[in-house]
Design a binder for these strands. Structure first.
Length: 873
RNA sequence: GCGAAAGUGGCGGAACUGGCAGACGCGCUGGACUUAGAAUCCAGUGGGGAAACCCGUGAGAGUUCGAGUCUCUCCUUUCGCACCA
């Protein structure tokens, strides 16, 4: 064993040992319990960032721990390799996205290996590989056959300068991110997946996901947004039937059918067909509609903007009273939800109330509180009453509770054929077409004669040409005749290949299945999936709480219904790790641009008034004071990222892993601290030195537990207590920080234990072995070396996580806390098997207790066995 | 606006089931070693007080022998959703 710890040498040796033995390649084994430990695969952006390191370290600690617990552990890794950044890199460097992506993968794979993750690299996959994405295409065709995939027109953000479609994130304040041109809404044909067909199951099954954070389940439930209500048809008034250009009636959806008699107007979205028809003869209305459609893009802005509207001059008839109601176009009605039209009930809806107030529309109160007296809603003094209550002014439906009123009104409407109860979801079908190059081609051919023709299975995959370089304007596939020129698979005539590619969320919706059978050549998945899946643990960022996790759940259910899978939920347990934060420091010169500085370069000083000041010295600025903007997520733009590669070079992977796991529990945010990293490094060296010192003294004799002194028994108990605590902290609670703290305490105890006797050395040997075993999942290279140094002939990764020795944990006496009136006054040491009366007597005899009790009468004595005595006076 | 989570030393965080508040680490203070120190080791470190003791987990109430933990009200922060009819 080397005298001083050399992380580079230690880590090289351990990694080489694992590599040579292919230690982490696993096979299905029906005789052993499996553990599928899955981390969200990264986008190959170029370099790992600290968030990746945290994610994969958590996964690796669990994988290694479960392996030591005897499980057959699968920990795979892959690359979410399609996507926009590769195109952006191509635009700025002229490098084809494929080459850029593959270089990044190679670099990041190397970084992961240097961190020592116990990954089965034989199962590695990249979604840009035709062997992978051909199955996207294959299953898309199956979905098309089942009607789960379909084509319809959809609205996209269009950049008129670049002639390209923009993702929502590329639209900044209504303008294209590259060109700054105002973004237009365009309707183009796209493919959709019918996720709403599964809305109910996706919602219901959330209840069964007990291993998921409540937060994520709530977010998904809100996203699905189930509401139960009624669909109501308002027939057009005879005079406007022709003008409305629509047949029969204006449909709305409402959750408050009980307020139907309070409807005083109708409000429709600017994009509603009736609005468009009315605008043809009404220039003012047309202008208003244009204004609404151009209007703000972000939903948060929409939510706060002032309610505006304009009458159409068209009327409908109330389905039960026959009264005429005017149709208004209103900016607060969304085309994308329900029917794109609502009945305006100002007395019982805040938004309708505000709208009615502004446009002097009548207000009719039809619900009163169940408890208070009837109160009429009167704009502007008495605002809308939105609670459930008892109906009034509602003809034969007056005097009913909410439930009874809805039931009665729905029945009456149904009888007339003008309405029915219905469930409405907020969730919408998933549009998967992207007018992008670097993605999976949608396997469709458009034929002038046959129309839309699916590419036959035997012609899959439709291979994405990899030599194109996007220039920022339009989709290069649509400009590449070599790609889009083809023959119709049906009639053989010249035809045009679909040039849209799939949303990259498609790629990530099933990659975790493919790991189980990454080499399956003829099928998307095979029986091995049923061995490994569902994943026992999934680990990733909270930012994927909704979309990715919902899509993956949906995809799993679709594949189950297609007969490819036997389960409907892919991830049994979910851990959402917190963000990695660091301090943000900026400097703003007069009129200059704000500059951000690496926190490692910022010096902290006490100013004249004692407050902390921060300064930075640079070549161009000299020494300047900078502003501390607080903590924020590590990011390139704020200059507060820490590069994992540099960290590994300076301190080693084990120090990086130890610090990350120690600094905070996995679900919480992690504040970066260079001093904390130093602390982790210091602890590792102290452990190394302790082992070195111990083994340098020669081989330790075998432990004879029956002849130990008190101090020896105490250290032995501390070691086994540490093991028990770490087992619970890692295995059950997933609190790695406290497990590490326990080992630190143990090492402190070993440091205090200065016993060079044979028995003392034996006890120390056991304590160091336990410390090494417990840390093995966290700092595997270090522990691999220490394990050898401690004289083991087997490798640490093949070692079994031991159970604590009950005899070592046993105590003859126990310390018990004594309180008087709930305040700590002393401690007594009592035999473990002492009965309550003895404990009580010992407590009352304690000097401090006698002092505080004095001459006051003792009212009660509460004895909590093994813990405490409280004397109440 | 709605929903969720969280507020504990100078800092990150412990205290899991109501039972010793502040484990462990960082920082800081003092000391040792050293020509010197960035290293390493030892000791101390919630506040007040000479001490006995007292006070202390965002604020206020409550339940309890006992509350960081449970209940209520309020405040603050973070996150998510956001005109969802």
């Amino acid at each position: 064993m080397q005298e001083s710890y050399d992380p580079a040498a230690v880590e090289r040796a351990a990694q080489q040992y694992w590599d040579e033995r292919r230690a982490f390649e696993v096979r299905e084994d029906a005789t052993r319990a499996k553990f599928y430990c899955l981390s969200m695969f990264p986008y190959p952006s170029g370099r790992l960032h600290m968030g990746h390191v945290r994610n994969y370290t958590i996964g690796d600690v669990l994988a290694r721990y479960m392996r030591m617990r005897g499980h057959n552990v699968l920990q795979p890794m892959g690359w979410d390799a399609f996507g926009l950044p590769a195109e952006n890199a191509a635009i700025s460097n002229g490098v084809p996205p494929a080459r850029w992506t593959r270089q990044n993968i190679a670099h990041m794979r190397g970084q992961m290996k240097s961190l020592g993750f116990a990954i089965d690299w034989s199962r590695e996959l990249a979604t840009c590989d035709p062997h992978y994405y051909r199955w996207n295409q294959w299953i898309f065709l199956r979905m098309l056959e089942k009607g789960i995939a379909y084509r319809k027109t959809g609205v996209v953000n269009w950049d008129p300068v670049d002639q390209t479609v923009l993702a929502n994130e590329q639209v900044i304040e209504g303008r294209g991110w590259r060109t700054g041109a105002p973004v237009e809404k365009r309707e183009i044909p796209m493919y959709y997946l019918n996720i709403t067909r599964y809305a109910d199951e996706l919602l219901e099954a959330l209840e069964t996901l007990n291993g998921w954070p409540e937060r994520v389940r709530v977010m998904q439930a809100n996203w699905i947004g189930k509401s139960e209500g009624c669909e109501i048809a308002f027939p057009y008034a005879p005079d406007t039937r022709a003008a409305a250009g629509a047949d029969g009636a204006l449909k709305v959806f409402t959750t408050r059918a009980d307020t139907l008699f309070g409807a005083t107007f109708m409000a429709i979205a600017a994009e509603h067909p009736v609005a468009l028809a009315a605008a043809k003869r009404n220039p003012a209305l047309s202008a208003f509609i244009d204004e609404c459609r151009r209007g703000s893009v972000t939903e948060a802005e929409v939510a706060t903007q002032e309610k505006k509207g304009m009458p159409t001059g068209l009327h409908v008839l109330h389905p039960l009273t026959g009264r005429a109601l005017e149709i208004w176009v209103a900016n607060y009605v969304l085309m994308g939800y329900g029917e794109g039209a609502v009945m305006g009930v100002p007395a019982h809806d805040e938004r309708d109330f505000e709208f009615a107030l502004k446009n002097a529309l009548p207000v009719v109160t039809v619900v009163r509180s169940t408890t208070g007296a009837y109160q009429e809603v009167r704009a502007p003094w008495i605002a809308a009453y939105g609670e459930y209550g008892i109906t009034v002014n509602s003809g034969q439906f007056s005097g009913l509770s909410f439930r009874a009123a809805v039931d009665g009104i729905a029945a009456a409407l149904e009888h007339k054929g003008l309405g029915r109860k219905r469930v409405q979801y907020r969730l919408r079908d998933w549009g998967i077409s992207r007018q992008r190059y670097w993605g999976c081609p949608i396997p469709i051919v458009h034929c002038g004669l046959c129309g839309e023709v699916p590419v036959p299975d035997e012609q899959l995959p439709v291979v994405l040409p990899e030599d194109l370089v996007p220039d920022g304007s339009g989709n290069p596939l649509a400009k590449s005749a070599a790609f889009y020129h083809c023959r119709c698979p049906k009639c053989g005539q010249p035809a045009r290949r679909e040039t849209d590619t799939m949303d990259t969320f498609v790629d990530s919706s099933w990659y975790f299945l493919r790991y189980a059978c990454a080499d399956a050549a003829r099928t998307m998945v095979d029986a091995r999936v049923d061995y490994w899946l569902p994943a026992d643990q999934y680990i990733g960022g909270i930012e994927h709480a909704i979309l990715h996790l919902l899509y993956a759940r949906f995809w799993t259910k679709v594949m189950r219904d297609l007969g490819a899978l036997k389960f409907g939920e892919p991830f049994t347990n979910l851990l959402t790790q917190g963000m990695v934060l660091n301090h943000i420091y900026s400097y703003q010169s007069d009129g200059g641009r704000k500059r951000y500085f690496d926190p490692a370069e910022v010096a902290v000083r006490r100013g004249a008034d004692g407050a902390e000041v921060y300064e930075v010295t640079t070549a161009d600025l000299g020494t300047v004071l900078v502003t501390h903007e607080g903590l924020g997520k590590m990011s390139k733009s704020e200059g507060n990222g820490v590069d994992p590669e540099g960290l590994v070079e300076r301190f080693g992977a084990d120090t990086a892993r130890l610090f990350i796991m120690f600094a905070s529990p996995p679900e919480q945010t992690l504040e970066w601290s260079d001093e904390g990293v130093q602390g982790a490094s210091r602890f590792i060296r102290r452990l190394w030195n302790a082992v070195y010192e111990h083994v340098s003294a020669g081989e330790a004799p075998p432990l004879d537990a029956s002849t130990l002194t008190g101090a020896q028994r105490e250290l032995r108990r501390a070691a086994h207590q540490t093991l028990a605590k770490a087992t619970d902290d890692i295995g059950r609670r997933r609190n790695f920080n406290t497990a590490i703290a326990a080992v630190m305490e143990l090492l402190n105890a070993v440091g205090r234990f200065r016993d060079a006797s044979a028995a003392g050395r034996a006890v120390r040997h056991e304590a160091l072995r336990i410390a090494t075993l417990v840390l093995a999942p966290i700092t595997p290279h270090l522990c691999h070396a220490l394990w050898q140094a401690l004289g083991s002939t087997t490798a640490l990764i093949d070692e079994v996580w031991p159970a604590p020795d009950a005899a070592a944990l046993a105590q003859e006496t126990r310390e018990i806390v004594v309180q008087v009136n709930g305040k700590l006054r002393g401690r007594i040491s009592v035999a473990v098997n002492a009965d309550e009366a003895a404990v009580r007597a010992a407590a009352l005899a304690h000097a401090q207790v006698r002092k505080f009790v004095a001459d006051k009468p003792v009212q009660r004595v509460i004895v909590v066995p093994g813990k405490l005595v409280n004397v109440v006076v």
